[in-house]
Design a protein around this nucleic acid. Structure first.
Length: 232
DNA sequence: TTGATACAATTAACTCGGGG
DNA sequence: CCCCGAGTTAATTGTATCAA
């Protein structure tokens, strides 16, 4: 069985060893390391590429949220916090799970089971963590149907929401899985899994995505799009 | 020192028309 | 359907500026 590699991030020694102790009962989980602050965690994540984080939210200097925001690829996250669930709800974060300290064993097991399930489902696109105004979002790339350029930023549409990301379309295009995402013109990237209909009006391709939005593919990209669509 | 904002320069992408 | 060229548009990047 493939082991799940986890990283424990907490400024308090006691909290880290508590998680270590709880994890001892799970042979399929391997502790890739411990970090005591966000900067250390950043380094370790880049080196170790853990699949799961146990992340404390409140830490001196930078918070757990700050850490996630600065990551290009965000692993699964189980927040560990002294806040109660209701206080956390205020953040509107939809994490894999929250564990409120002190952590009960049954509760911990539940979280682990969820993590196993999520890791079992292969999600090829991964997720990002974005703050938009007062809201934090975990965004699965697979849930993103449209990305539009807005000045130097990108507006990412997912579900019925959208957020700004401090990144240009070019940068996103490079990093995104090109088998799923396609640049239909210089201002828009679409997720091809959300394409509903493709029509052609005097040579121009028009795509309707599942939100009902009608998008025009530029002439140049139309040619590439045909190739790409044929490629699969 | 950082971060946000503004503007100008660059350049890729765009449209349109004309031919294979 | 595809390619080419000329002229236009706008996304992106770099530089400057100002506030915290």
């Amino acid at each position: 069985m493939k082991k799940i590699r986890v990283l424990i991030i907490d400024d308090e020694r006691a909290a880290r060893s508590e998680i270590r102790r709880l994890l001892a009962g799970y042979p399929d989980i391997e502790i890739a390391g411990e970090a005591v602050n966000v900067d250390d965690a950043l380094k370790m994540i880049q080196e170790q590429k853990p699949e799961l984080l146990f992340l404390d939210i409140q830490m001196p200097e930078k918070s757990g949220f700050d850490l996630l925001e600065s990551l290009e690829e965000v692993p699964l996250v189980i927040f560990t916090t002294a806040y109660d669930q209701y206080a956390l709800k205020a953040f509107e974060v939809s994490a894999l799970d929250y564990l409120v300290k002190p952590i009960r064993e049954e509760r911990f097991e539940k979280a682990i089971i969820q993590a196993r399930q999520r890791l079992g489902k292969t999600d090829p696109t991964g997720q990002i963590f974005v703050k938009d105004r007062q809201q934090y979002h975990f965004i699965q790339w697979s849930s993103v149907h449209l990305i539009e350029s807005m000045d130097n930023y990108a507006r990412i549409f997912f579900g019925d929401k959208n957020v700004f990301l401090k990144s240009s379309l070019n940068q996103l295009e490079e990093k995104l899985n090109s088998t799923i995402f396609f640049r239909i013109n210089r201002a828009q990237i679409i997720n091809r899994q959300y394409i509903q209909t493709i029509t052609t009006m005097d040579g121009r391709l028009k795509i309707t995505i599942s939100t009902g939005a009608q998008l025009e593919v530029s002439e140049r990209q139309s040619a590439k799009f045909r190739q790409w669509a044929a490629g699969k």
